[in-house]
Nucleic acid binder design. Structure first.
Length: 765
DNA sequence: AACGCATATTTGAGT
DNA sequence: AATATGCGTT
């Protein structure tokens, strides 16, 4: 491990060695940024810094995991495993859970994802009787999110003149009130949204100096990756934490700042020198990734932007191929031409599918390429879009599990109180919500205390509600004695969710059933790995991270040697021998929402810079002249960004020159594109591509034909069979009536305590 | 309360 | 094109 410093060039090595004081590492694309970060941490560990004194913050779980793996290779798994390394959100949610009572939250607080947040805002808009054409949940959430990222709390928002003025101008003066109610309802529900994780960390550090001091002392060395993408809230957390030891190293590239839409401040990296006086500056300018043509083209592009940290990225690799441009008549043809070109590359250059990436501006563009790839039977993997955990069937089961841990979680409650259908409809839920708002208590507290909070519902409905309460309480009891997998399995079958989906005949329902099985398999894997590591295996532990996971965190073994399809945003930090940047059209890239100010346009241009610099050997751009938007074909024109590239790095063809000049041809291009190459509108089957996509091999977890005996017949001493645990012997019965439980010994699974009301056991004669 | 059909709205990136 | 919402029927 002593010689890893030899693998670095001079500025890289200097950046690694500068342990003490503030360091700013400006790392051009492909200049070995991750290498510097990992070796810097390895160097700290090698010079006797304990791993728990090191805090390393990244933007994605994937980046954190990869870095951890690379560090483990240098210093061993034990040391690497004890590092505090992860995303801002995951690290500070961990800290918040252990300090939760200081803030009046339960340590098992729920993390609301964007769907939960929007649903809550929607119900508040309704409660306040606001015009929902003016108040859109997504827009309101955007305002609240922006406020939180700038540490403007609900209370201070009211007095913030610029915020109030902005809302007045968009005719949404009630946003301040919605924000206030939203905050109150989150507290009532024991829930934090994504932005809260950072906001409450700041509040924790502000109001509890002893807590701040504890973590300041702990984290002697702090490292931040992608510093250009930090927002004010994150910036301040880092600043406060580093005050004690002042050993902070931030790494980033102002040219790759692409997240201002979610509050990132490029100024954070530009102002580092003022925030941390006496800092050392390291510039990594040699690009080891790409050919000279690619680096030069990207340099020329980014020069069109103003306000940058001056740097000269260069490559000593081959000159390489020119950037190729594919122009197509229609979006379908674009898919066909890109995939044909890609296939030709695979065939003629003996390349693997995994060497290719197709990058686009919006997730909606993926379908065209999925279809083209399917037609040719070419393997691909697709990231983003609707993530696994966002799918309805997954969220439904997770919602039950969330309620078991935190019954006050009102968004979870609303999701499952009538799923599967048990006759508690919108009217009834509305009454529960009203009572909850009037008494400032959670929905659960209303239905769990029917005498204290009587509802104006008929007797039948009241019975149904109590039935639901009793189901959840039964699950809570199960949770005391079952691990995450056993509990989830029993919830899935006892609620009837599994059965509900299994009886469905459509392709979609089958896919949902398989997704649910995959979730259960995932929970089983979680239980077995944590058992091995000696870590807790409760459902609470499983849920802690679920809201923070994305599809990229679920890389499967069978994802090897496949073409990668993803947005440019999610491609940041990755590299591929060959890259196709598709949909190079005005209004799409640059996005039509980002052409109104210089800043917006420059961010789009940086995004294009990120896209090009993903390529090692060959970059190809494509666009079409007619694209389906909102279901109707729309005329499109090539992106202005193509003109931002120096022509000497582009493979020009006569046809391209001719077509590119006629930017305003209205219509004559859209002639017979339907017949060209026999393209048709996307088939109906194609529409379900995403739903049908299996994420892994499915293992059977239950037999739908299993016939259970009625619970009353079960007696101690009987031999029984259980759908999941197989044969077993009833050791003992305990509890009474509704909550009668059986302790059963299963030779294959050990002793289990099952609630008879749910267990579904078959007596073996 | 559940279901089916007609109409409105959406697609900008992700922890 | 796909999803959300609204309205009428059972």
């Amino acid at each position: 491990m002593s010689n890893f410093l030899d693998e670095l060039n001079t500025p890289q090595r200097e950046a690694v060695m500068a342990k003490e004081g503030p360091s700013l590492v400006i790392a051009g694309a492909g200049s070995g940024k991750t290498r510097v970060l990992t070796y810097r941490i390895a160097h700290l560990l090698a010079t006797q810094t304990p791993p728990w004194n090191i805090l390393a913050l990244t933007f994605t779980n994937k980046a954190a995991r990869e870095m951890k793996d690379r560090i483990a290779k240098v210093v061993g798994e034990d040391l690497a495993g004890s590092l505090w390394m992860g995303t801002f959100h995951s690290i500070f949610s961990k800290i918040l859970r252990s300090e939760a009572e200081r803030l009046g939250f339960p340590s098992s607080f729920t993390i609301y994802d964007t769907t939960d947040s929007k649903s809550l805002i929607k119900s508040i808009i309704k409660q306040l009787n606001l015009d929902d054409s003016n108040y859109k949940p997504a827009g309101v959430l955007g305002r609240i999110s922006m406020a939180k990222n700038n540490l403007i709390t609900a209370a201070s928002y009211k007095g913030n003149t610029s915020a109030i003025e902005a809302d007045r101008q968009t005719k949404r003066p009630e946003i301040a009130r919605i924000y206030e109610l939203y905050t109150a309802r989150c507290i009532q529900s024991g829930a934090m949204d994504f932005d809260d994780l950072l906001l409450y960390t700041n509040i924790l550090f502000r109001d509890h100096p002893d807590v701040l001091e504890k973590y300041q002392k702990k984290f002697k060395y702090i490292l931040v990756d992608e510093y250009q993408d930090t927002n004010f809230s994150q910036y301040l957390i880092v600043k406060k934490l580093s005050q004690q030891h002042n050993n902070i190293c931030v790494v980033g590239d102002d040219a790759q700042s692409i997240y201002s839409f979610r509050g990132a401040k490029i100024e954070n990296i530009l102002n580092f020198k003022n925030d941390y006086p006496g800092h050392k500056l390291f510039k990594l300018e040699q690009n080891y990734r790409s050919t000279q043509n690619i680096v030069n083209a990207a340099n020329g592009l980014i020069k069109k932007n103003t306000n940058q940290i001056p740097k000269e990225v260069f490559s000593e690799n081959n000159e390489g191929e020119l950037i190729k441009i594919i122009d197509a008549y229609t979006d379908n043809e674009e898919g066909y031409l890109v995939i044909s070109d890609l296939y030709e590359q695979v065939a003629t250059k003996q390349m693997k599918f995994e060497d290719f990436a197709i990058l686009y501006r919006t997730n909606a563009q993926s379908r065209i390429f999925e279809e083209a790839l399917r037609k040719r039977n070419m393997p691909y993997k697709i990231y983003g879009g609707l993530s696994f955990y966002q799918r309805k069937e997954i969220k439904d089961l997770i919602a039950y599990l969330r309620m078991i841990i935190n019954p006050d979680d009102s968004e979870a409650l609303k999701r499952v109180i009538n799923y599967p259908a048990r006759g508690i409809g919108g009217t009834t839920v509305g009454k529960i919500e009203q009572t909850s708002a009037q008494n400032s208590v959670s929905l659960w507290q209303v239905i769990n205390n029917p005498t204290e909070f009587p509802l104006a519902v008929n007797k039948g409905t009241a019975t149904k509600i109590q039935g639901f309460v009793s189901i959840i309480k039964g699950f809570m009891e199960l949770n005391e004695t079952n691990d995450a997998y056993d509990l989830a399995q029993q919830v899935a079958s006892a609620t009837g969710i599994l059965n509900d989906l299994h009886t469905g005949n459509t392709v979609e329902e089958r896919a949902k059933y398989e997704n649910l099985e995959e979730l259960l398999n995932g929970i089983r894997d979680f239980v077995s790995t944590n058992t091995q590591k000696g870590e807790p295996v409760n459902i609470e532990n499983f849920l802690e991270n679920v809201a923070l996971l994305t599809d990229q965190d679920n890389e499967k073994n069978d994802d090897k040697n496949k073409i990668t399809l993803m947005t440019i945003h999610s491609a940041k930090g990755l590299e591929f021998p060959q890259v196709y940047i598709v949909g190079m059209e005005e209004e799409l890239f640059p996005s039509k929402m980002a052409v109104h100010t210089q800043q917006e346009l420059e961010e789009e241009r940086r995004l294009f810079y990120v896209a090009i610099t993903r390529a090692e050997q060959r970059a190809t751009l494509s666009y079409c002249r007619s694209r389906y938007k909102y279901g109707t074909p729309t005329h499109t024109t090539p992106s202005r960004f193509i003109r931002d590239l120096d022509k000497s790095y582009i493979e020009t063809s006569k046809s391209f020159d001719a077509k590119f000049e006629d930017t305003d041809t209205s219509g004559e291009q859209i002639i017979d594109f339907r017949t060209r190459g026999g393209f048709k509108k996307p088939s109906k089957a194609g529409a379900n591509l995403a739903a049908n996509r299996k994420l892994t091999q499915i293992k059977k977890t239950s037999d739908p034909n299993f016939k259970a005996d009625s619970p009353e017949k079960i007696q101690s001493g009987m031999n029984i069979e259980h759908a999941q645990f197989g044969n077993g012997k009833v050791i003992k019965l305990e509890g009474d009536l509704n909550n009668k439980k059986a302790i059963i010994f299963f030779p294959k699974f050990g002793e289990k305590k099952l609630l008879l009301r749910f267990a579904r056991l078959r007596i073996i004669e």
